[in-house]
C-alpha cells in the first residue's frame, strides 16, 4: 500500500475548533441537562434516566411521533409520483422548457413562514380563494376547527411547496438519459408505458432515491409551515415532533425533558442519516456496475 501523507488533517483544525464550540459543546450540554432537573441556576438535582423514562412513556410524544411518521409517509406517497408525472409532462427543449422550469421552481424560493401565511389566507373561508371556493361548493371546510381539514391543508401545503423539488430532480434525471435508449425503444415498438417502466424509471433510480430521502428528512423536521398555518391545532392534531419539542423546551422551559427528547430526536435523525448515506453510496456503486454491464 502506498504511504499517505496525513498532514493535511492539520489544516482542518480551525474547522474542528469552530464545530467543537458551536456544535459539540452544546450537544454535550444537552446530554448534561438530560440527566438533571434544573430548577434554577443555583438549584439542580441529578435524576439519572428519569427524563428519558418520562419522555419515552409520554403519550403526547408517542402521538406526535406517530403523526410525524404518518405525515412523512403521506408526503412521500403524494409528492414522489406527482413529481415524476410533472417531470414527464414538462417540455424538454426550447424556451417553453426554460419558462416551465422557472414557473415550477417559484414555490421553492418562498420562505417557509411566508408559505404558511399564504396558505393561512388561501384556506380562509371568508377571504381565502380555496376556503371560499370549498365553502361555495358546499363543503364544511375549516382548517382551524376540523382535524382532518387541518391535515389536508398542511399536506396540500407541503405538496405545493416541495413537489417542484422532486419534479426538478426527476427532470434532470430524465434529461440525462441518452437518446439511444429511446431510439432502441421505438425500433422495438415499445409503448409509452413500457418506455417509462423499463427505461425512464430504472434510470431515475438515483435521483429518486435522493428525492425520497431529502423529502423524508425535510418533512421529518418540518416546523415553520404547520406552526404558522395551524399552530399545531386543532387540539394537537397537527403538532409534529419539532413543534412538540419547542413547546416543551421554550414554552414550558422544561430543560430536562426537552433535552432528553432532543437526544431521542437526534438518535432518530442520526439513524435516518446513516441509512441515507449508505443508501446513496450503494446507489452510486450499483450505477457503476450497471454501466460496466451496458
Amino acid at each position: 500500500m502506498k504511504p499517505v501523507n496525513q498532514k493535511a488533517w492539520l489544516l482542518i483544525l480551525p474547522v474542528v475548533l469552530c464545530v467543537a464550540f458551536s456544535a459539540i459543546l452544546p450537544l454535550m450540554t444537552v446530554v448534561n441537562y438530560s440527566v438533571q432537573d434544573i430548577i434554577s441556576p443555583e438549584r439542580r438535582v441529578f435524576v439519572g434516566t428519569e427524563w428519558f423514562k418520562s419522555v419515552m412513556r409520554d403519550e403526547d410524544l408517542q402521538g406526535a411521533l406517530l403523526r410525524q411518521m404518518t405525515f412523512s409517509l403521506a408526503v412521500l406517497l403524494v409528492e414522489i409520483p406527482l413529481g415524476i408525472a410533472l417531470a414527464l409532462s414538462m417540455p424538454a427543449k426550447g424556451w417553453k422548457s426554460s419558462a416551465v422550469l422557472v414557473l415550477v421552481a417559484i414555490s421553492l424560493l418562498i420562505p417557509w413562514n411566508v408559505v404558511g401565511t399564504i396558505w393561512q389566507i388561501f384556506g380562509r373561508v371568508d377571504i381565502g380563494l380555496m376556503g371560499a371556493a370549498l365553502a361555495a361548493l358546499g363543503f364544511d371546510y375549516s382548517y382551524t376547527g376540523n382535524a382532518s381539514d387541518a391535515w389536508f391543508t398542511v399536506l396540500l401545503m407541503d405538496v405545493w411547496h416541495w413537489t417542484p423539488l422532486v419534479a426538478l430532480l426527476c427532470f434532470a434525471g430524465l434529461r440525462a438519459i441518452p437518446d439511444a435508449y429511446y431510439q432502441a425503444a421505438s425500433i422495438d415498438g415499445a409503448s409509452k408505458f413500457a418506455v417509462f417502466r423499463y427505461i425512464q424509471l430504472p434510470k431515475l433510480r438515483g435521483v429518486l432515491m435522493i428525492a425520497v430521502l431529502l423529502r423524508f428528512m425535510d418533512s421529518f423536521m418540518i416546523y415553520t409551515e404547520p406552526f404558522v398555518l395551524t399552530g399545531g391545532g386543532p387540539g394537537n392534531a397537527t403538532t409534529f415532533l419539532s413543534q412538540y419539542l419547542t413547546q416543551k423546551a421554550v414554552g414550558q422551559f422544561d430543560l430536562g425533558p426537552a433535552a432528553a427528547f432532543s437526544l431521542i430526536y437526534f438518535l432518530i435523525i442520526l439513524l435516518l442519516c446513516f441509512i441515507l448515506y449508505n443508501w446513496m453510496q450503494r446507489v452510486g456503486t450499483a450505477d457503476k456496475t450497471g454501466a460496466g454491464h451496458g
Partner: peptide, 14 residues
C-alpha cells in the same frame, strides 16, 4: 459550575 456539569456525564464523554 455555571454549565452544571455532572460526574456521570463526564464519565460518559471520557
Amino acid at each position: 459550575e455555571w454549565m452544571a456539569w455532572t460526574l456521570p456525564v463526564a464519565v460518559f464523554f471520557c
